[in-house]
Design a protein around this nucleic acid. Structure first.
Ligand SMILES: [Mn+2]
Ligand SMILES: [Mn+2]
Ligand SMILES: [Zn+2]
Ligand SMILES: [Zn+2]
Lengths: 152, 152
DNA sequence: TACTAAATGAAAAAGATTTTCAATTAGCAC
DNA sequence: GTGCTAATTGAAAATCTTTTTCATTTAGTA
């Protein structure tokens, strides 16, 4: 199921939100990028088409889109800035280069059984999960010799 | 293997860092908490023992401790502030309540095989992973009816 | 005890995100 | 189409978080 502009606008309407030119522009910027963008980056792109648009509107729109599950946030290791990214075509996860930031998507995670067990043991109603592997890409290997575990 | 003050100080010395009263206080604050604390929260606690200590010193010390793998950061969904947390006794992951922020640790993740495959396919040298489940705890359930997927 | 590089804290700077509020506008009723 | 109204927008200010600078202090060592 692909997230087209039409579908996203439909979802917005369903949620009781209005369709404004600003929102249209933002949605297009996000749809048309295959990268994970920060609000500031989205602002930069959106301005090319609509120079007057404010960064605040980006934040507000992204918040709505995220609340409707149309896009979502990404939390990379290292410096924990909030990176917003486009909603992909399907559930997937990331493999991130800790040096250059390259992000590779992958789709299989097989966490269903673990999720079921946790849910049972803790009485949580689990609604999602975040899985990221961190390492060094081929390019970046050979420069440093670190190897850190980002879990805790 | 438990991270006592002594062991952490040893690791600092090994890394070429000096042991200062400030660092001692910060380490103790982190060791003695079973919660995940932000730099500001750590500052608050540390000040009770050493009122003059600056927030900058917290940041600097936490950065060192993280670089030595003695503590690490946590990236929760929702508002992506960087939460620092104490290094637990072993590799583990989190189950987080999206409403009240309660964090439950769990240790099994069985990601070895997936990691090996990814590593092979992408030529990444994988050094760690981050796995978090998000949901609603028992208490918080019954209030709202959301159910979001935090992946992308 | 003296030396020196490392560490500290105050203050400023830099960034990111949120709040406020007056002006504008999308969607709807007529 | 016209007008109404609540939602939306953007500028500015306010908040927060994190980093940088720099003068002063201090831990570790000889
Ligand atoms: Mn933990
Ligand atoms: Mn992705
Ligand atoms: Zn890389
Ligand atoms: Zn809860």
């Amino acid at each position: 199921m692909v997230y087209t502009e039409k579908r996203i606008e439909h979802a917005l309407r369903q949620g009781g939100y209005k369709i404004t030119p600003q929102r249209r522009t933002i949605i297009n910027a996000v749809i048309n990028s295959h990268e994970h963008l920060t609000p500031a980056e989205i602002h930069g792109r959106v301005r090319r088409e609509n120079p007057g648009i404010g960064l605040v509107t980006i934040y507000r729109t992204l918040e709505i889109l995220a609340s409707l599950n149309l896009i979502c946030e990404m939390h990379a290791g290292g410096n924990c800035r909030s990176y917003l990214m486009r909603r992909p075509l399907e559930h997937h996860h990331h493999l991130i280069c800790s040096d250059c930031g390259t992000v590779i998507d992958f789709t299989d995670c097989n966490l269903g059984e673990l999720e079921r067990r946790l849910s049972k043991e803790t009485s949580f109603k689990i609604s999602g999960h975040l899985l990221e592997f961190v390492g060094q890409c081929r390019k970046c290997r050979g420069k440093t010799l670190v190897g850190q575990d980002i879990n805790a």
